[in-house]
Every structure is written in C-alpha cells, then in structure tokens.
C-alpha cells in the first residue's frame, strides 16, 4: 500500500510539474511585456536595466525555477490589479467564501444524489426513477451558469424571495449553494443508480435472496458496499466539476471568492494572480486525484497490487 501511494504521488508530481511548465510558458507567450511602454516608451538602455532588475533578461528556465522557488516560499508576486498588496494577501480572503459555499454545496448535494440514486434503483420505472434520470440528465448537460441564471430569475426576480447576489449574510448563501449542489447531485444520482442496478443484477444477490435475507438487509449490508467503488471513481470528476463551476457560480452571484478573482484577473490581464490561481487549482486537482486513487485502492485490493485505477 505504501509503495502504491508513493508511486501515485510520484506520477502526480510529474503531472503537476509538466502542467506548471505549460502554464508558465503560456503566460510568457502572451505578446507584449510589462515595460514595452505604449504611452511612455523607455529608452533602450533604461528598459534593459529594468528588465535586468526584474530578472526578465534571463533565459526562461531560469525564470521558471526562480518563480517556482518563490512559490515554494509562498511568494506569488504582486498582482497588477492591486499593486500595493501581494497575490497571497489578495487571495487569502477569497478562500473563505469559495470553501464555505462549495463545501456546503457538495455536503448537501452528494448525499441527496446518493439517496436519489438508491431510491431510483430500488424503484425502477416509477416516478422516482424518472425524476432521478431527469435530474441527472439536466444537471450534467446544462452548464452551471445557466442553472444559476434560472435560479436567480425564479427566486430573486420573479418570486422576490431571496437576494440574487452578495456574500456575508447566510440567507444570501442559499441560491449559490443550491447552484453548487446541482453538480454533485446530478453526478451522484446517475452513478449511484447505475452502480446499484449493476450490483442488484449480480448472482450473489440472487443467492442472498434464496437464503431468505430480508430485502432491507440485502440492500444495506451487501449491495451498497459493493456499489461503493463507482461512487469513489466519480469523486474526482465531481470535484473538478464543482471547482470549475465555482468560477461561474461566483461570477453569477457576485461572491468575492477565488472564482470571481479568476474571472477578474483574466479580464484585467492580471497575469501574476491568474498564474497563482491556476497553480493552486492544479495542485487541488492533483491532491483530489491522489485522494480518489487511495480511496479506490482501499476499496479494491486488485488495484493495490500493480494495476492502474483508470
């Protein structure tokens, strides 16, 4: 098991390295530099000195390692949109809303989705099954900013029950959390349903029935456990979906979280902030990747001994 974890850590670290190099190169391939001066062109000598002062005259790989060295010490540079601050101080506040809203969304959506999936699998071709299918299809096909828009239109504009935007007061959380929750809800409803159906059709369930076990015990002690592996595999796409969704949910509901900064730094071409956000997101995905791999290995002994999870 330790060997398996080390192996996965190594391969994820490699991926992180490759992705960070790609992001760095892309940021540097953007035409135009900070001292090219449109309105106030600098004399070439001055420009060269300033470039040297900021280390911009050195080869790219030196700049990369310098940057990453700074990142390891928590120094992501200075954001263009707030020159008096550092990227870290700018973003340190933004973690909280993203974590609270996204976290609550997953904590509410995932169990509801699992329950819905179970109910659908146990009552095939009844209204609850159709409801689960509808929720899954709608949630997985319609982009989350459209879902958010519909929520805002219905509950804020027409019914006037809830505010459409804002952050600190808890009653303003309801709509964004609902929007977030649709992602895990749809994902888990679909995969729990199909995993349960798969297991229910296995011969061992027939044997259990033949032995006279009650349907409840069959479902709760045998079928659920054997259906849990697909639920774990879905964790990673669900996490990525929710994290990417935060960009849209937060700009829809004007929540001052990481997603809103992601959009604003793209709009204002604030490259240090965007670079930092991309690196953080990649790191988060890598961690999620490792977690889901480890969970998967714990549930499925066959993977531990040399196989691959995907």
């Amino acid at each position: 098991m330790t060997r398996f974890i080390l192996q996965r850590l190594l391969s994820v670290a490699t991926t992180f390295f490759i992705v960070s190099v790609i992001i760095f190169l892309m940021m540097h391939s953007i035409p135009g530099g900070p001292f090219d001066g449109g309105e106030m062109p600098l004399p070439p000598a001055v420009r060269e000195r300033i470039m040297a002062q900021y280390g911009l005259d050195q080869p790219l790989y030196v700049q990369y390692f310098k940057y990453m060295g700074g990142v390891l010490q928590g120094d992501f540079g200075v954001p263009f949109q707030a020159p008096g601050q550092t990227v870290v101080s700018l973003l340190s506040q933004a973690w909280i809303p993203s974590l609270v809203l996204g976290g609550l969304g997953v904590l509410i959506g995932a169990p509801l989705g699992i329950l819905l999936g179970i109910a659908a699998a146990l009552n095939r071709n009844t209204w609850i099954d159709y409801l689960a299918s509808a929720v899954a299809t709608l949630g997985l096909t319609i982009p989350v900013f459209v879902t958010s828009m519909i929520l805002i239109l219905v509950f804020a504009v027409w019914l006037n029950w809830l505010p459409s935007s804002g952050w600190p007061e808890p009653h303003k959380w309801i709509l964004p959390i609902t929007a977030y929750a649709t992602i895990p809800l749809a994902t888990y409803a679909r995969y729990t349903r199909s995993a349960m159906l798969d297991t229910l059709n296995k011969p061992f369930v027939t044997v259990l029935r033949a032995k006279g076990l009650s349907e409840g015990r069959i479902v709760y002690t045998h079928v659920l456990r054997n259906s849990s592996i697909p639920m774990v595999t879905v964790f990673l796409p669900m996490f990525i979906g929710t994290a990417t969704g935060s960009i849209f949910v937060e700009s829809m509901f004007r929540v001052p979280g990481l997603g809103l900064f992601f959009v604003s730094s793209i709009r204002t071409r604030d490259y240090p902030t965007e670079m930092a956000l991309m690196l953080m997101l990649t790191l988060m995905f890598c961690v999620a990747y490792i977690i889901s791999d480890i969970l998967y290995a714990m549930l499925n002994p066959r993977i531990r001994n040399g196989g691959r999870s995907t």
Binding site: T15, I18, V19, I247, L281, F285, Y289, T310
Partner: peptide
C-alpha cells in the same frame, strides 16, 4: 495528459 487537465480551465 488531456484528461488530467480540466478542459474548461
């Protein structure tokens, strides 16, 4: 590589 990087990002 393409499946590790989230397409939208």
């Amino acid at each position: 590589i393409f499946s590790v990087v989230p397409p939208l990002l």
